[in-house]
Design a protein around this nucleic acid. Sequence first.
DNA 1: ATGCCTCAGCTCCTGAGA
Length: 256
Amino acid sequence: MKLATWNINSLNVRLPQVLDWLTANPVDVLALQELKLTDDKFPAAAFAEAGFQAQWLGQKTYNGVALVSRAPVVDVVRNIPGFVDDQARLLAGTVGDLRVVGAYFPNGQAPGTDKFEYKMQWLRALRDWLREELAVHPQLVLMGDYNITFDDADVWDPEGMRGQIHCTDEERTQLQALIKLGLVDAFRLFPQPEKSYTWWDYRMLGYQKNRGMRIDHILVGEALRPRVKSCTIDRAPRKNKQPSDHAPVLAELQLL
DNA sequence: ATGCCTCAGCTCCTGAGA
């Protein structure tokens, strides 16, 4: 059972790359973020032709998430229940014996801004809902673009980024609050290359200089920890002509 | 330096991303 998450920064632009990537990487479930299209523009037929069905939550210009899956996704939840939100950021569904949550966490811009406050409120609402969700579905996977680094190892310039967005204590405390619910960072279950990142700034030759951050994560419920066989970042799509600024993250789970 | 890229949109500039 293979899972993946990828912020594709416009599905309109990146659909051919996503389809090519799925051919090269036959995953069972792919969570997508930043579709940047409305529901009526979602290319369901193209995915169907490739053998995938999908659930999606679109939005004009910004945000937008999808779960692309070989098997049907059922009991679908759109956005965080109980949290009034006009932004399309979360999609949950059951695939086989897994509860899969795909999410595009708010960026937050900078501490002290309204967007940062929204990020904190969203994170608290996510934690409260996940606590209940985990109680019902211990076999839960939360994957997506978190827009938060765990620690210095996730940042190319930890000193320069200290206290900056994606690296603040407030954000990291909220990320640890998710861990405390009984989730584990699948990537760190395994030895990994140093300076492993999932996002690089388009500007200043960020990718070429490997000036990046690890902000896309796959967290699994403790009940799933023994089943995680691998977790990797795939930098291959960066070789494409018009790459997303994010790389996909993959995890392989042992079938029961 | 608030830009350096990239994308969407009331599109030849602006807002947002991270």
